[in-house]
């Protein structure tokens, strides 16, 4: 049965409502920005892993590329930051187009290759030889265009866009065809589905979202080093968030990211290595004992999860 678009609108309204009220009632804006970025990343990974089965360990490559794409259009082309965030998303799409051949790889190989690709993007952008363009390892300063209020709403816009795409995947026949490709690409082809087209759309959308999140993040923190926007934790955290909540649904990654990022903020920020330990154990335990995530618990008691 296809799901009702109303459920999608309800989730969107809820997300918008929560972050709009938090903006006025909650003083720690950088926490909210980080949370929204992680929600968007978890959802972006969900679009790819949950709906097409490709596990992008190197997803942070698109986030970092988006951050730099946005920053460089601001610094060199003097674009309006909101347009520059979109440019950041598009620069991640360009990286995605370059990496399209990776889609020929299956399962684990795709995961490893995407990780190597993210590392390569980092090595290129942070290379001292490119200092005149990217500032190399010395970091980027966007202080001149810093605008906390519009920045905040832009990040929320990115999150809502991402959630809307996930909801579209969840209720549309296109989303269904993606899951058909994930389950069995030959069968999908002989059911008339254009496998290549479906995978490309999902892949490039996922890249675009990673880049948008990176762009909005860059604008909001306004000063950053290459290793802070290409940090592997920016892949690991959202993967754990998405898998913990449950991929292939809209609310799974949101719940997962909300709960675990809250936990991280409560105990992890001061002691990142203890948190890394906890995360590692969580990944192992999840995959071995609860591969369907939190939402699979709801499914067991026959609650339908959107």
């Amino acid at each position: 049965m296809l799901k009702s678009p109303l459920a999608g609108l309800a989730v969107l309204a809820l997300v918008a409502g929560i972050f709009a009220t938090s903006f006025f009632t909650f003083s720690n804006e950088s926490l909210l920005i980080n949370l929204m970025a992680f929600l968007a990343l978890a959802q972006g990974i969900n679009l790819l892993y949950g709906f097409t089965g490709y596990m992008p360990f190197g997803y942070v490559g698109f986030f970092g590329t988006g951050a730099y794409g946005c920053a460089l259009t601001i610094l060199f082309l003097h674009w309006n930051p909101i347009a520059a965030v979109v440019a950041g998303g598009l620069s991640a799409v360009v990286l995605g187009v370059i990496l399209v051949p990776l889609l020929r790889l299956e399962g684990a190989y795709f995961g490893i290759a995407s990780l190597a690709a993210a590392q390569a993007a980092y090595e290129i952008i942070s290379n001292p030889n490119l200092t005149s363009i990217t500032q190399g390892p010395y970091g980027i300063n966007l202080g001149a265009v810093y605008a906390p209020t519009t920045g905040y709403w832009t990040m929320l816009g990115v999150l809502l866009f991402t959630t809307a795409i996930a909801a579209y995947f969840r209720i549309s026949r296109f989303g269904l065809s993606l899951m058909a490709i994930r389950d069995n690409s030959n069968s999908a082809a002989t059911a008339g589905v254009n496998v290549l087209r479906g995978r490309l759309i999902a892949w490039l959308l996922s890249c675009f979202i990673g880049g948008l999140a990176g762009g909005a993040f860059a604008w909001n923190i306004s000063f950053f080093y290459p290793q802070s926007v290409f940090a592997l934790t920016l892949s690991i955290f959202p993967i754990v968030f998405a898998v913990f909540g449950g991929v292939g649904t809209v609310i799974g990654p949101l719940i997962g990211a909300g709960l675990l990022y809250g936990l991280y903020d409560a105990v992890g920020v001061a002691n990142p290595e203890y948190f890394q330990l906890l995360y590692g154990l969580l990944i192992v335990a999840l995959l071995l004992f609860m591969p369907g995530g939190l939402v699979s618990l709801a499914k067991k008691v026959r609650i339908h999860v959107f």
Binding site: F57, G107, G111, I239, E273, L277, G280, L287
Partner: peptide, 26 residues
């Protein structure tokens, strides 16, 4: 026993690698 053992092993050992690195850092 997983549906896609190679991918499952990748993710699980990714977790193991995080644990090993974290313990070493601690």
């Amino acid at each position: 026993q997983a549906e896609d053992p190679e991918l499952a092993s990748l993710i699980v050992f990714f977790g193991v690698s995080q644990v090993l690195e974290a313990i070493a850092t601690i």
